[in-house]
Design a protein around this nucleic acid. Structure first.
Lengths: 345, 345
DNA sequence: ATGAAAGCGCTAACAA
DNA sequence: TTGTTAGCGCTTTCAT
């Protein structure tokens, strides 16, 4: 049988309460007995039983992270920061992936009642009003990452402004026919990014051209929508559509995710066109790969986002009622070769 | 207060034992009472408390996965398959990352005593004899993935043979000066891959040239060793070393991971050399990116590996004492542009 | 087939 | 400061 708190108590000739206090760093304990107990704990290689601790204390020392099917490098890089920070605080990360958005609810409700985690981090997913209410009632800390709702703590980037800056960059280096490629229209950041794109056009008195807006919904291929169209293939196909526009073809494209941009790059070179001369590109995310393919992009501070999100949720778990947090980072324009500064002709 | 098994029992007018039986799908229960209880469970939105279940049943429905700091795309892709399979079986994945190999022990021992997980998946990490003994004694299921020890279940690829095939491919298309770039020498797969490389040379009576073996230990930069040298930068620097060999320069290189190969590609093009004419490349892993950069590589069946590993550990958890499993997959040569078939004059 | 009751290993409130 | 004890919410005998 595994060694329990009773074994430790007996061997140290103290009560189990005392052992418990030692384990939990209770301040009210004499250094002498503390040392004695600690010694026995070491001798017996005692380790508290997580479930028993959890049941009695109503804490699990685990945080759930629900991610939308981590195909995307962006999530992976975000997740990396989150894991590190969670681990640093002595918590464990339980990872859930949902391939369909509806399934998210199942996890949320389970998390709520099952009491297996002390808090939930929801990545890049919308949340329904009734779920918010549920979390509020059960007082289970919830933090949104890369998603927004006025009533829930959230860490985001300024999608609208980011798209504005990216599009603006393309216009300012001389492009007038600027297109946008983005994910599924009902994905949270997509609308905002489209708005930023439109605002940049407006600012320069460039009329919005319907044909220059390619969302992932455009093509009827559910395969490509698994991650809301934020994938290489979707970017590839979207760019093909733009290139098929003949002499109406845009000379520059703002692409709302680097991974789509990477697909787009291929579509461009396959047509025998060059970047940035024939088509200038600005992406979004600054995934590790972006530098590799010399992609100009709007950089998201991924590890910073992860850090803040975890700090906030741990703050809430710890009971220091922090005020509602809506932290938003401004993405930074990283200029690389794909936008260039030269125009074609 | 949350609804407990007592609330359900009271409302359904049965004992808590009966409710418990319903929850756990016990066969000895009349369909009638089962329905009645199920109805109440739904009405009350009852969900068993995970900790209480765990404490009483000694099962946590969680599986730990210890990965070496998931910087690498290979791990991510592996992890994806593992998560899916774990989830499919109704288990939760607790993810631990260890940046230093020594820290692994901490997690292993904690997993052993803390009873927070029902099994442990160890990815790409060696395991010490004494830890094996500990796991054996406490009967906590352990499965190695991408690592090997005779006494522990393991899912691997045939590194030696894979390296052999990759190197052999380069030799057969005409190369004689074939180098190898790989990770830290003490990393498990590295030695095997070096052996496969050497065997291929031998088979063709090509003498082994010390200068053509670049391991990640070669350079004194601990940054680069975080993931045992399996990263872009390490590949980049390693290739530079080879290119600096002047007229002794190899014409082909087998690179023991795609991510290093990607770094190497850059080093080559920066020197104004072309691939595959000046330098042919074969990588290892077939990460998603490999196709993108047209890298010939030895493909590992990542989702298959994950699936088998999870199935095995769940089998062990379920108590069907499966016999010791040592499944090894043969990596498959995927020929793309980076190896080409043309030699440079 | 079902109910009652004894734990599972711990925390926390209460006494001392 | 410390020991004792009553739960935490469930599973699992053991009766019935």
């Amino acid at each position: 049988m595994a060694v329990t708190i009773y074994d430790v108590a007996k061997k140290a000739k103290v009560g189990i309460g005392t052992v418990s206090r030692v384990i939990n760093n209770s301040p009210h304990i004499s250094p002498k007995t503390k040392d004695k107990v600690l010694k026995v704990i070491k001798e017996l290689k005692y380790q508290p039983h997580a479930m028993a601790q959890g049941l009695a204390s109503k804490r699990s020392n685990s945080i759930a992270c629900i991610v939308p099917d981590f195909t995307s490098y962006f999530f992976v890089e975000l997740l990396r920061g989150i894991q590190q920070e969670i681990s640093k605080h002595g918590y464990d990360l339980i990872l859930y992936c949902v391939d369909e958005l509806d399934k998210k609810e199942v996890f949320l409700r389970r998390a709520l009642r099952e009491k297996k985690v002390d808090g939930v981090l929801l990545l890049s997913m919308p949340i329904e009003e009734r779920d918010i209410e549920r979390f509020h009632q059960s007082r289970l800390p919830l933090v949104l990452v890369d998603s927004f709702h006025p009533k829930v703590d959230s860490i985001t980037v300024e999608n609208e402004q980011g798209a504005y800056i990216g599009t603006n960059h393309l216009i300012e280096i001389g492009h007038e026919k600027v297109a946008i490629i983005t994910g599924e229209y009902n994905s949270f950041p997509v609308k905002e990014r489209i708005n930023g794109y439109k605002r940049a056009l407006q600012n320069h008195n460039i009329p919005f051209n319907e044909k220059y807006l390619i969302t992932a919904d455009s093509f009827n291929n559910s395969e490509l929508l698994l991650d809301h169209g934020f994938n290489k293939m979707a970017g590839y196909i979207s760019m093909q559509k733009l290139l098929d526009l003949g002499n109406e073809r845009p000379t520059a494209t703002f692409i709302a995710s680097d991974i789509q941009a990477i697909g787009a790059l291929r579509a461009i070179s396959e047509k025998g066109l060059t970047i940035p001369e024939d088509m200038a590109i600005v992406g979004f995310d600054d995934i590790e790969l972006a530098e590799w393919v010399e992609l100009t992009t709007m950089s998201q501070p991924k590890s910073e986002i992860g850090r803040i999100a975890v700090d906030q949720i741990i703050n809430k778990i710890s009971g220091n009622n922090p005020s509602l947090l809506h932290k938003s980072f401004l993405p930074e324009l990283i200029i690389r070769k794909s936008s260039g500064t030269t125009l074609r002709s």
